[in-house]
Amino acid sequence: MGGLGGFLLRRACWIVITLWIVYTASFILMRSVPGGPFDSERKLPAEIQKNIEARYKLDQPLINQYFNHLGNILFAGDFGPSFRLTDFTVNEVIKQGFPVSASMGIFAITFAFVLGTLSGIVSAIRRHTAWDVSFMTAATLGIAVPNFVLASLAIVLFVFTIPLFPAAGWGSLRQIILPALCLGAPYAGYIARLTRTGMLEVLGRDYIRTAYAKGLSERRVVTRHALRGALLPVVSYLGPATAGILTGSLVLEQIFALPGLGSHFVEAALQRDYPLALGMVMVYTCLLLFMNTLVDLSYVMLDPRVKIETQ
């Protein structure tokens, strides 16, 4: 397993460098946008404006702010106070929001994976049948219909017409189902299409013909031999998809009034809440890099042809 250790070490180095570049770029971008976090419709007296800025150390030269903030993150893991949610630190905001986004995301991704692969497999095996056409139409719709439309339809149907679920809010299993389904739907569509394409390609291979020639049942051929190869594109898609899903969705969080991370992401940027926006960017980047590493590792597990580079 020495190869694996070396691989992880090298990957870790790259992750650190990437994170640093992302941090720096975000920092510069954010500070070059006009307006500041403490602008308001009511003009504050200059004296008070100055005091607020001093309190958050915004009066210091930009380069000092950069190194101070970066230093705090590196040595204390502290992203500092949120400028807009004044009672909270960025760490607290993330600590509260991440579990919400994560549990909704886990549901959504599980739903997307199960539904997507199953319909993809069925479509591939029964291609050009009514099954195939209807599954693929549904998949295309799932990808094409924006999730706020889907969510609105779901609310009309399952909250008002047939009162199965509560309209919004957070705190029980029933409240999680509608948003998770709406969040997962486009991903399910992608996964179905990816599985179908992957499956079709694999089913044409020699080793599948050999398997059939041995007299194996279709079910056995598909689950034992074809599935592994067919799922490779899905696995590589799952990495970034999971990172995206786990950091939440602004639209769905607003429609279902969920206290997840998605709203913070957009609002922090709009309100010039510098530390929170930076924190969110870093969380997303970390998740993305972590998931990609996991994907690379599972590739090795799934596909015997892939080897970890060991030079």
């Binding site: 609310i155 909250v159 008002f160 009162p163 509560p166 309209a167 919004a168 809010g169 607003q254 429609i255 279902f256 009034a257």
Partner: peptide, 10 residues
Amino acid sequence: TALNMYLTGQ
């Protein structure tokens, strides 16, 4: 959303 929650008694 708030109105939906009101109409469903939340």
